[in-house]
């Protein structure tokens, strides 16, 4: 089976030929249904990797192949969520979640006629992330953690094959974060969606991912890939077990070295 995402020898430079070389010689394969976490020093090109994969940026050299097609424009099989929830304040939470359906080609023409069906789906998603009954509230009536949950729903409403999460839990407290880890874990288990998660939290990466990818300092490339050996379904207890902490430790020292190497 060919991988869902294949990044081959990609160079990406911002701001013209003399601009910042963000990533260089980037190679990465992501299989269908896989959960990949990307970690690395700050500014190493993790967000750039996300934008390359979704087709928001087109690399100057190398190729990005998603679902057997070379990426030349934004690919519409993805859902994205960023650290900043970017909810639109003039729409209710439910309307925010339905927004992708107004845009994705496959859904936009069906939306009006099948509104009830889609609303039911959105409400089910809200329930999954623990926001049952909050659909009618405006985003600014929700806490940061609740907005981030709603943000996840928005990323999932159009049933993307590929979910790209760029530090989605960065601004949350430890408890909310752990709760949302479980939400993501269960979503991944239930829907078989492929997930790429960029994070600074190494425990998060090991707890959630099938494979942790470590990037070098800028210009970023993949320096190592670590399969995560822990069996699924994983419980939060795992966080306090020795093998788990050993792996986190190993990743930590690897990134520390990568930072110094820059």
């Amino acid at each position: 089976m060919t991988p869902l995402v294949s990044i081959e020898n990609v160079d990406m430079r911002y701001g013209g030929p003399t601009g910042t070389l963000a990533v260089s010689g980037l190679n990465l394969k992501i299989n269908r249904g896989e959960f990949v976490a990307v970690v690395g020093p700050s500014g190493c090109g993790k967000s750039t990797l996300m934008k390359l994969t979704t087709g928001l940026h087109i690399p100057q050299s190398g190729a990005v192949i998603v679902a057997d097609a070379k990426v030349t424009k934004p690919v519409s099989i993805v859902g994205m969520a960023f650290q900043n929830p970017t909810m639109l304040p003039w729409r209710t939470t439910l309307e925010n979640i339905l927004l992708p359906l107004e845009i994705v080609e496959r859904h936009r023409h069906r939306l009006r006629a099948n509104k009830a069906e889609y609303v039911a789906k959105a409400e089910k998603l809200l329930e999954t992330v623990g926001l049952k009954g909050f659909g009618e509230k405006f985003p600014w009536q929700l806490s940061g953690g609740m907005q981030q949950r709603a943000n996840l729903c928005r990323a999932l409403i159009h049933e993307p094959e590929l979910l790209m999460l760029d530090e989605p839990f960065g601004a949350l407290d430890a408890f909310t974060r752990e709760e949302l880890w479980c939400v993501i874990r269960d979503l991944h288990a239930a829907q078989g969606v492929t997930i790429v998660l960029v994070t600074h939290d190494l425990r998060e990466s090991v707890f959630l991912a099938d494979k942790v990818v470590v990037m070098s300092a800028r210009p970023g490339r993949v320096i190592s890939e670590h399969p995560v050996p822990f069996a699924r379904p994983r419980q939060l207890d795992l966080l306090y077990e020795q093998p788990f902490n050993d792996m986190v430790q190993k990743l930590h020292s690897e990134i520390a070295t990568a930072r110094v190497a820059a």
Binding site: K51, T54, G55, L56, P74, V75, S76, V78, G79, M80, A81, F82, N84, T86, L88, L99, P100, I103, V104, E105, R154, H158, M164
Partner: peptide, 14 residues
């Protein structure tokens, strides 16, 4: 418009 909002929508094919 916040670039992130734009990115989210563009990634959907907007």
């Amino acid at each position: 418009i916040e670039p992130e909002t734009e990115d989210v929508l563009r990634a959907l094919g907007a």
